[in-house]
């Protein structure tokens, strides 16, 4: 999905590009494509609905399944999981967030912030599969996530055109502005958590996943990195809309070009 979205974004930079995928595509068959879309900082919201299982084919483990997590038939997963957030950090991702499909209150502002981001916004949503991965022994069940979720980083999304309605967030709040004037305000539950410090975020996530805890929230944000179009120096207007007359050098130039081929 990621390269198709990249092509769409390349042709029309005015479109809001949203990619919705699962852990099967994003972390296995399309893993390479996700990695390179992150590296290119394609401006899009990329959502991974992560349930740790292949549901449509009836319950095989996906690459995000935790070691020891059990399938519905009771077999344990033996392979180490790929953590989308840690992956993103290592690839230079500019927006990383994790939410939980059981917590709309947290997820909605995350998605809004992802849409406002000026580059590749990767949002992993732990989305328990009620059919094949919501049982005892699974680490991606509603029960497990509710029990082990650490809402460490609160984020409030403030759209550019809306008044801030005075929601007072306790604790120290950090505000990061998007290019269009919207803003995200973080409240760090652990003192000193800085969502702009890549190394610290990585250490924090590793530490908590080692304890079987799922850290959710807007985890990392960097608005300073140029996106695909800025990197390629494309014009403000979408490439697809450029008039043909501007694109074709014409007969006279062709003759001149060929003068060198004689």
């Amino acid at each position: 999905m990621a390269p198709i979205a990249t092509g769409v974004a390349a042709a029309n930079r005015e479109l809001v590009v949203v990619g919705v995928s699962g852990d099967g595509d994003s972390l296995s068959i399309g893993l390479g494509h996700l990695c390179h879309a992150i590296r290119r900082n394609v401006r899009m919201l990329y959502v991974i609905a992560d349930n740790g299982v292949y549901g449509l084919t009836k319950g095989q483990f996906s690459a995000s399944a935790d070691v020891g997590s059990r399938s519905r038939r009771g077999e344990p997963n033996l392979l180490p999981p790929i953590d989308a957030m840690l992956l993103g950090l290592s690839l230079g991702a500019t927006f990383l967030a994790r939410g939980f499909s059981g917590d709309k209150g947290q997820l909605v502002p995350i998605l809004k912030a992802g849409l406002a981001h000026g580059g590749f916004a990767l949002v992993e949503v732990i989305s328990p599969c009620v059919q094949f991965n919501d049982h005892e022994g699974s680490t991606k069940s509603f029960g497990y996530v509710r029990q082990h979720e650490l809402q460490e980083v609160d984020a409030d999304f403030i759209p550019s055109r809306e008044e801030i309605r005075g929601q007072q967030i306790p604790g120290t709040a950090t505000e990061v502005k998007f290019h269009d004037g919207a803003a995200v305000r973080f409240r760090a539950v652990p003192p000193g958590y800085d969502p702009r410090d890549r190394r610290a975020v990585e250490a924090y996530l590793r530490d908590h996943s080692g304890h079987g805890e799922i850290v959710t929230g807007l985890l990392y944000l960097d608005e300073s990195v140029p996106d695909l179009h800025q990197l390629n120096g494309t014009p403000e207007e979408p490439l697809w809309s450029l008039p043909y007359e501007r694109l074709c050098p014409g007969a006279a130039e062709l003759a001149q070009f060929q003068a060198r081929l004689r």
Partner: peptide, 24 residues
Amino acid sequence: HDYLIVQAEDELAALSMVIGANWA
């Protein structure tokens, strides 16, 4: 630059990008 050339990660990605761009 009135063009955008992507050196893709593989040929699946290359043609995917072409399809996405043509669709748009």
